[in-house]
Design a protein around this nucleic acid. Sequence first.
DNA 1: ATAATATATGAATGATTATTCAAGTGTTCA
DNA 2: TGAACACTTGAATAATCATTCATATATTAT
Lengths: 122, 122
Amino acid sequence: MTKRNQWDRCDCKVIHEDVVNTVKEKMPPEETLYDLAELFKVFGDTTRVKILWALDKSEMCVCDLAVLLNMTQSAVSHQLRILRQARLVKYRKEGKIVYYSLDDEHVKQIFEQGLVHISERL
Amino acid sequence: MTKRNQWDRCDCKVIHEDVVNTVKEKMPPEETLYDLAELFKVFGDTTRVKILWALDKSEMCVCDLAVLLNMTQSAVSHQLRILRQARLVKYRKEGKIVYYSLDDEHVKQIFEQGLVHISERL
DNA sequence: ATAATATATGAATGATTATTCAAGTGTTCA
DNA sequence: TGAACACTTGAATAATCATTCATATATTAT
């Protein structure tokens, strides 16, 4: 008596086998899809979207962003670290003040594509 | 003796007041930025990225996707619900089989912009 | 009607994560 | 030197979320 698992119960794997295999061949490497998801995860937070949008308008220091977003400077700093690690923002120090700015010209385009999608679902 | 809060300790709000105000005026409405983040949150998961990528290549049923991604049908179905709610995929029923396909021509463009960013950080 | 199949879904669980709090580093100014 | 400032960071907490498991619905075949 062979034990059945979830896969054995699906006939599609036989019926659509060639479709699945063709798609499988066309899929990018696992790592690429993972990196892509990780990048979008960074965009998937209101605070970070606000920061990126603000920095697209003007270079700003951490304190400016905290005032603008009405958040603690600590919370902003934590989010800036994530944006730094994703190489979406860069910074320059001027005395004790740290000025952040965008480090990617594609951010705006990604946002715009997202906005198109949002505006279409009315 | 006036109690000081976090905002009182920051001089930037005085120094950079006009910059902050100018940026504030240029910011999109709160709701737009929230929706944008919600959309990217949907893209911010490896499973969903894989599903979207696969559906861009071919219409597929839930079982096909489960086999392709080596996941349980239940897990795939849960993620498809999220993609449906975000209006990124649509479906058609054929008997007991449900075929899913992409419902947005911008998905590919958003992915491509993301890939450009990833490929540039070497 | 019953069994098998394809999919959906609610509850539970474990993992991830945004924010807060407290403490730290480094710089400027008195 | 020391106090104030701008910012960073680690730990704790609370909220969110992906997956699993069990069950439910709908369709087809016997």
